[in-house]
Design a protein around this nucleic acid. Structure first.
Lengths: 203, 203
DNA sequence: TCTATACTGTGAAATAATTCACTTAAAAAC
DNA sequence: GTTTTTAAGTGAATTATTTCACAGTATAGA
């Protein structure tokens, strides 16, 4: 079941998130059409995606919201809690440290890192913060699987190398440069400027 | 030239950003292969994308970095400055207010908005901040084309509606819910949790 | 219980995206 | 000046994705 396309995974992740909203509204069943509408895709694609994953709905009722959430969670390994660490505790990094939504979705920020001792001392947060010098140790001790890069671009590649050497398995990069990671490490960019560029190009 | 696929636009945007890095390294020419490697795609795709846009390179030298930047900027309408406003001045919103990289790339944050008067008074930033009550007026006065949503999810749809009514043409949504916008408005999600989910699914 | 309905699930068709293979051309080397 | 090399540009082939069409079926209503 590892032969899912990136597009499918991305859509399924969106569905997964959307189901939360439906549960809040106490909607028990949802059809592929409504799901598609809520997500900006087509009913065909939704059905294909779900069917590819082997999850199944009900004739004339659609998909059971609660059940679907569970099933998707299992298929995409989203049920197990994942521990993450954030490197770079500037404005963005500290905002991410306390980002509530991560917790709700099973991602736990268990450490923050920065190279500036000053910054480490000034930061007010519940999360433990460390010097990047301790990164390797802390990643191992706390079983951190995901590294979040929020440092200035000049430092990004270095931080990525350090994180990979420390043993993280996935990296989410908020810095505006693309970094290279070893084979087997899952990597994703969150480049704000690029997002605005994309919008501008579509205007 | 509006018949570019989203994939192509996304890749071109990435190339556009990558060219900055090359210019900083004072690299004058770059081949499709190197470009592809730096971006995690293939040389074929790079050549197809660029050729689709009608920009052209040099035999045995590759693409002229400076020229390519200019050409891509023109083709994607990235040369003209774009004004943006941020709604929601929490941790994330204020981090975005001062995000340096926007300026470099021709995006100017010309206003911040929040509904909390308290917050507006406490904020220390160079950017002018306003109550959301003044949003419509300020968007018009300052010719804001892009709206950035950084409010809690409960308020997101409302803010999106207000922004669209005020006349913005594109929306970048950092809240974790998908909002719906009228036909013709360019819309993009930046859902952090979803990004982590995507990584977790790929682990 | 029966019937009409509104869904899913899926193979097939259509469309889109990527990769390949090869032509062409400029630069570098000799 | 000639040859070799390297890389762009591009139509064709391949592969992937999306859409369609419709059979099958559980549900709601009567």
């Amino acid at each position: 079941m590892k032969d899912l396309s990136n597009n499918t995974i991305e859509r399924i992740c969106k569905i997964f998130g959307y189901l939360d909203a439906l549960q809040k509204k106490e909607i028990g069943f949802i059809s592929s059409r409504e799901l598609a509408q809520g997500l900006g895709t087509t009913e065909y694609t939704v059905r294909k995606d779900l069917s590819t994953l082997g999850v199944t709905g009900h004739t004339r009722r659609g998909y059971d919201v609660k059940l679907l959430k569970t099933q998707l969670g299992e298929k995409l390994h989203l049920t197990q809690k994942r521990k993450a660490g954030i490197v770079g505790l500037g404005r963005l990094g500290t905002a991410l440290l306390d980002y509530e939504k991560f917790k709700v979705d099973g991602f736990e920020i268990v450490a923050g890192f920065d190279c500036s001792i000053n910054k480490l001392e000034r930061i007010r947060t519940q999360i433990d913060v460390f010097s990047v010098n301790d990164l390797k140790r802390v990643v191992a001790e706390r079983h951190i699987e995901l590294g979040i890069i929020a440092v200035p671009e000049a430092a990004a590649q270095n931080v990525a190398d350090t994180l990979c050497a420390a043993g993280v398995k996935g990296i989410l990069n908020f810095s505006p440069v693309k970094v290279t990671v070893p084979e087997g490490i899952v990597y994703l960019d969150m480049d704000f400027t690029n997002a605005l560029r994309f919008i501008a190009a579509r205007l």
